[in-house]
Design a binder for these strands. Sequence first.
DNA 1: GAGTGGTCTAGACCACGAA
DNA 2: TCGTGGTCTAGACCACTCC
Lengths: 240, 240
Amino acid sequence: MNRYKEIFQELEDKIKTGEFASGEKLPSENKLAQEYSVSRETIRKALVLLAEQGYIQKQQGKGSIILDIPTYDFPVSGLTSYHELTKTQHLPSITKVPVFHKGRICNEKEHHRLFPFNETNELYTIIRQRELSGEVVIIDKDYLDAEIIPDLTKDHASTSLYQYIEDSLKLEIGYAKKEITVEPITSEDQELMSLRPTDSCVVVVRSQVFLQDTRLFQYTESRHRIDKFKFVEFARRNKK
Amino acid sequence: MNRYKEIFQELEDKIKTGEFASGEKLPSENKLAQEYSVSRETIRKALVLLAEQGYIQKQQGKGSIILDIPTYDFPVSGLTSYHELTKTQHLPSITKVPVFHKGRICNEKEHHRLFPFNETNELYTIIRQRELSGEVVIIDKDYLDAEIIPDLTKDHASTSLYQYIEDSLKLEIGYAKKEITVEPITSEDQELMSLRPTDSCVVVVRSQVFLQDTRLFQYTESRHRIDKFKFVEFARRNKK
DNA sequence: GAGTGGTCTAGACCACGAA
DNA sequence: TCGTGGTCTAGACCACTCC
């Protein structure tokens, strides 16, 4: 573990536990550098991480003010799997896997829409139902490149795909392009989701997910019942 | 302008224009440092900006790969005003301001929900209709702290609030907490928006916006017709 | 072994805010 | 004037990839 990440986590802890209260100032960068016996640039890397995640606001000439702890203590924007979310949020959740198969997609146009790069590879097609308090409120449709993610089982799908990919296959997940829209419900939604009579649309989150070596390995379409969907973001203004 | 931001912009340009083609590698950090006659750390700060915005993917031991140019060339996530969006996207757009007034909000609970911090200040209440090809597809409800943002006029509201705040008042906008949900339409939506007969819900983006000195100055509720709403994000995996 | 990016340092100078 | 954060440097060592 790098020194600046360690320092980031220590400071994050102190903010979360209230040892550094919101509204107050962090010790100055010079003091922190002394305290941790590192150079100031190393402290600054830690503070950049804190600022990015909404913990502090830096002010030239004054210091770093500690902000209100975000009500969400998990990265809801960003790239986090459903399994990780339910775990950090302590949500009791059940996952069912009504569809799991491997093969080429016959419709070439469909294939191209999903995987603009690898045209010939076999794909895993997985559909998962996410159940919260007895209702299916999310369905995830996943397509994974079987050349990159081999030997996938239904069991991996019902627990955590990303755990298998990162821990067992030792692959590094890099980045994703995501898109959120609201769309009319389909007959598939009606079959697989616990929709209410008044529901006429769902929130659709489409993602292309890439490894650190830039290979596209996953396309996901996550369909949410609208009353159970909430997206939270901390955003900073880009200064010129 | 700082050197590392200049270098970021030059590299961004070269990627956008295709001088650096996607799939290829950027010159190494040492070469760039020589080329621009700066230290390697300065180059690295520029590359961090490129990586954050999805232009490159860095690989230890190999180099920095240029990614596909994002189809969106504007920050749709982040903190950008509607006026800036329509300008960078060259969208012809009309804004109407059916409601503009200043005063205290009588309902205290309502006031508290909007401004959890400043309980006593006067607020500007502004409603704006955003028209695209003859249809009102977004309505923005804004509440601004009149102590912080004084002398606001209907004219500022119909062009750009942020331009007035930053350029005229010389205030620095810092950060925002945003939240996206989908909610049933209200009678106000029906009055002010061009809803279709089938529309039963809208996308609601709620934001609290803060200055760099951490003062809350704006609460916004942006209501979008669902067929005109699309949120795009570039996300990176947090490595431990 | 050579080249790449990742981390870290010790010091410098600047811009800004507060007293 | 002094302390703060913002930028930048020149150099060091490491981990990794490729040959």
